[in-house]
């Protein structure tokens, strides 16, 4: 057998042909396979979901003047979303802020949230300023938790709620680290990231989130920001509102009425 020698040009030409064939053939095969696997049902489901999202941007308003720190919301949330009651994890929680001013003008802020606000104790102190702040996921427009997820297990829906895909989540806790509001935790039973969903299984069926439902003083309001007649849209327009940590650039969708500057 004679030894074959290729010129550079011939080698490059044939290599180019082979690469082209190698790319086109499997790509065509993949497309064909996908066409075979895809069924008609997914398209109808797709339109149903898109119809559900159309014209909706959910929003949440918390009135810090009204909250009495009863933590009915905390308990209702756990019962509704099957988060273990005896574990120190919360989708929503209530913080107590006590502000003391001494004569020299120094300000001391004491914050506590024992058992998410379910176990507030009477304290022997007389603060100058006292109030409660309910906290929950802000369902940010620009959510850091979604950005850092390495497996695409968390996402923001078309109607503005950040959800976790429990089947895809690998429990790496990156998202828990990245949330500036501490709104995420590892579900003690399921071992996947969990967070407030604004009760997506309720709001998608025209109900209010459980915490809004049970709040005895109406400190929590929920609705569609795009509907000008909704309570949330009206309050957002007329009330003096602030969001938490606006400097983080996350663009939160929980709006606080009369939020004190000491709150973080």
């Amino acid at each position: 057998m004679t030894k074959e020698r290729l010129s550079r040009r011939d080698f490059l030409m044939s290599a180019a042909k082979v690469v082209a064939a190698g790319v086109v053939a499997p790509a065509g095969g993949l497309a064909a396979a996908q066409a075979v696997f895809a069924d008609g049902q997914s398209t109808s489901q797709e339109t149903a979901v898109q119809q559900m999202w159309a014209g909706k941007e959910w929003g949440f308003v918390v009135d810090t003047q009204k909250c009495i720190g009863c933590a009915r919301c905390v308990k209702a949330c756990k019962l509704e979303n099957k988060v273990p009651l005896d574990e120190e994890v919360f989708r929503t929680w209530v913080e107590r802020y006590l502000v003391f001013n001494d004569d020299s003008g120094d300000e001391e802020v004491r914050t506590d949230s024992p058992n998410g606000g379910l176990d507030f104790k009477q304290l022997d102190v007389a603060p100058d300023k006292q109030f409660f702040v309910p906290k929950l996921c802000n369902q940010c427009h620009n959510p850091p938790c979604v950005q850092v997820c390495p497996v695409g297990a968390t996402y923001r829906t078309g109607d503005g709620v950040v959800l976790v895909d429990r089947k895809r989540c690998i429990g790496c806790r990156y998202c828990i680290q990245s949330c500036p509001y501490g709104a995420r935790f590892l579900h003690p039973v399921l071992k996947v990231a969990d967070k407030c969903t604004w009760c997506y299984h309720r709001i998608s069926h025209g109900m209010q989130p459980a915490c809004v439902e049970v709040c005895p003083v109406g400190a929590r309001k929920f609705g569609n920001q795009l509907d000008p007649n909704s309570q949330v849209a009206v309050l957002k327009k007329k009330a003096r509102i602030r969001v938490l940590k606006p400097d983080m650039g996350t663009k939160p969708n929980v709006y606080y009425i009369d939020l004190d500057e000491v709150v973080e």
Partner: peptide, 18 residues
């Protein structure tokens, strides 16, 4: 988007308690 589309339906169809 960059997630499993079926998951939206899974959340929507979850059981309510209240």
């Amino acid at each position: 988007g960059y997630y499993r589309g079926d998951n939206v339906e899974e959340w929507v169809s979850m059981d309510q308690t209240f």
